[in-house]
Computed example of a mutant assay.
Amino acid sequence: MSAVLATILIPNRAFSISISATAQGNLTPPTAIFPDTVTNGDFLISANDDPDNFIIGDGQEENTRWTLDFTQDPNWVAFSTTELLTSAKLTLTLTTCCNIETDEFRIQTLPSIATPSIQSLPRNTTQTIELELLDFYSSSDILGVFNRNSGGLIPMTYFDDALVSFARLELSNDRSQSVPEPSLILGIVTMGAIGSFATRRNEKV
């Protein structure tokens, strides 16, 4: 009975770990004239491949790039890159302009993502949205980028008719599949203790 109670009382998924990285900029960045670029905090804004608009930083026909650095997270050392991700939650703050209906974003080197969560946003407003990247990429795709070079960096790009002033990506994985749960360990120890007690009792009889 003690072993059963121990298993019930100790919660599962005790080895779930999350790390996050953030990029920030101003809602109203400075502007420049093509072909110059604009640095807006952690974001680099440049013209898209075929610009009709020669003002950079006004949110029209632009590419915005940033790199998320997870090595600054206190859980960075404990985060396992060999376990599948259970979540990859992206938060974006966008100030929309014209033609938002065609906007896309991506983790660099991976396919672009077009989603109604962005393309249906009203024009000329500032909105914060959340997206689960595992709905678009596999865990292996994301971790493949994450593990390149020295590891811990994910570069991203947004195209093309909105200003990006905030981006946050939180990665989570669950190590309970490869590491025994504390409940299981305690159950084994408890059962061992019960067995040892029973053996000693039999020896005394």
Rank of each mutant, 00 (worst) to 15 (best):
M1G: 13
A3D: 09
A3G: 09
A6H: 06
I10H: 01
P11Q: 10
P11C: 13
N12E: 11
A14G: 14
A14C: 15
S16W: 05
I17K: 04
S18E: 04
S20P: 13
S20D: 13
G25A: 08
N26Y: 10
N26L: 11
L27I: 14
P29F: 11
T37K: 11
N40G: 01
N40Y: 03
N40F: 00
G41I: 08
F43K: 03
L44M: 08
I45M: 01
N48D: 12
N48I: 07
N48V: 07
D49A: 12
D50I: 14
D52M: 15
D52T: 15
D52E: 15
F54R: 10
I55S: 01
I56P: 01
G57E: 04
D58L: 04
N63G: 03
T67C: 02
L68T: 05
D69H: 05
A78K: 12
F79A: 02
T81S: 03
E83R: 14
L85M: 03
L92W: 05
T93D: 03
L94E: 13
T96S: 03
C97A: 12
C98H: 15
N99I: 15
I100M: 04
E101Q: 14
Q108W: 09
Q108I: 14
T109I: 09
P111A: 15
P111E: 14
A114Y: 10
T115N: 05
S117V: 14
S120K: 13
Q127Y: 09
T128E: 00
E130K: 11
L131Y: 06
E132G: 09
L133N: 04
L134W: 08
F136G: 04
S138V: 08
D141Q: 03
I142G: 00
I142N: 00
I142Y: 01
G144N: 02
V145W: 00
F146D: 05
N149Q: 10
G151P: 04
G152T: 09
P155W: 01
P155Y: 02
T157M: 12
D161Y: 05
D161N: 11
L163V: 11
A167R: 11
L169M: 06
L169W: 05
L169H: 09
E170C: 09
E170W: 04
L171R: 10
D174N: 05
R175Y: 03
S176G: 05
S176Y: 02
S178Y: 06
S183H: 09
L186D: 08
V189K: 04
T190I: 09
G192T: 11
I194F: 05
A198I: 11
A198H: 09
A198Q: 07
A198G: 05
T199V: 07
T199F: 01
N202V: 12
E203A: 12
